[in-house]
């Protein structure tokens, strides 16, 4: 019991330290967190209005203008919940500059320390996203989803958050082999945003590509959770199970890469 309490204290303190660190430069933090999501939404909103300008009632791949705009609103909320910023670059700089040496001696694992940093960012993100969610629903900009759909959506969000945590630390751990990882991280973000349906709903993709994507984690990282909120969600448990499989896969992969990388670690800067 005492062990659990002591561990809890370590986590609590780390999360608090990271929270206050994130909130020191509030404007900076908000500019990183909110502006890109708003700009992305503004572009998508305007673009689809322009595409449907000749006939708003027209159906394109099953989407009328109002359904497409609803989809984009939910993508906006979804991005506020899950987008991660520069997390893998923090890990990468820890490795490159030899800062992980001290973590090898601390009674708090490096991954746990990074996870507490991730949690603190997510606390702020979840607060902002929930606030925007309430505004959008209360203004009637989207149809109010049922409590059950919100719960399904949140379970996706939980797993997607974990997915991105492990994906980001794996990208960061590549610093054991690479000089820089930011370009790899950026490429992964571009490709994921596209293939997950954040930019375009998957109905717009060629059929062979959509079929192929179902074997990858991408559709479960945006398209499926967003469809749940629009009331078009497919087999919830099946999708959740596939996503869970990918989370577990990335978890084991991250541990494997960490162990392999640590064998190469020379402690630069010690």
């Amino acid at each position: 019991m005492i062990m659990i309490y002591k561990n809890f204290l370590k986590w609590q303190t780390s999360v608090q330290v990271f929270l206050s660190r994130s909130l020191i430069y509030k404007a900076n933090f908000l500019a990183i967190l909110i502006i890109p999501v708003f700009v992305f939404f503004a572009i998508q909103y305007s673009l689809w209005h322009s595409i449907y300008s000749s006939n708003p009632e027209k159906e394109i791949q099953g989407y009328t203008l109002s359904r497409m705009i609803e989809y984009q609103f939910w993508v906006f909320i979804f991005n506020l919940f899950v987008r991660s910023y520069f997390f893998s670059e923090n890990i990468s700089s820890h490795i490159r500059l030899g800062k992980i040496s001290s973590f090898l001696l601390y009674p708090f694992h490096f991954i746990a320390y990074q996870f507490s940093s991730f949690i603190s960012d997510k606390i702020i993100q979840f607060t902002i996203a929930s606030f925007c969610f309430l505004i959008i629903v209360s203004m009637g900009l989207v149809q109010t989803p049922s409590i059950l759909d919100i719960l399904k959506f949140l379970s996706f969000i939980f797993l997607i958050t974990l997915y991105w945590f492990f994906a980001q630390i794996i990208l960061g751990f590549f610093s054991f082999w690479l000089e820089e990882t930011w370009s790899l991280n950026t490429a992964v973000r571009f490709i994921s945003a596209f293939l997950s349906g954040s930019i375009l709903p998957l109905e717009f993709f060629p059929k062979f590509l959509t079929d192929l994507l179902l074997w990858t984690p991408f559709p479960y990282l945006a398209y499926f959770p967003v469809q749940i909120l629009t009331g078009q969600g497919g087999d919830f448990f099946n999708s959740l199970f596939i996503l869970l499989f990918w989370v577990i896969f990335l978890f084991f992969l991250s541990i494997k890469i960490w162990k392999k990388g640590l064998n190469l670690y020379t402690g630069t800067g010690m």
Partner: peptide, 21 residues
């Protein structure tokens, strides 16, 4: 005027986003 420049650079990147449409 600021200490941490990441936010300023993010604003800059968003301008680039706008110019692509």
């Amino acid at each position: 005027l600021t200490v941490e420049g990441m936010g300023v650079n993010q604003m800059r990147l968003q301008i680039q986003q706008l110019t692509r449409w």
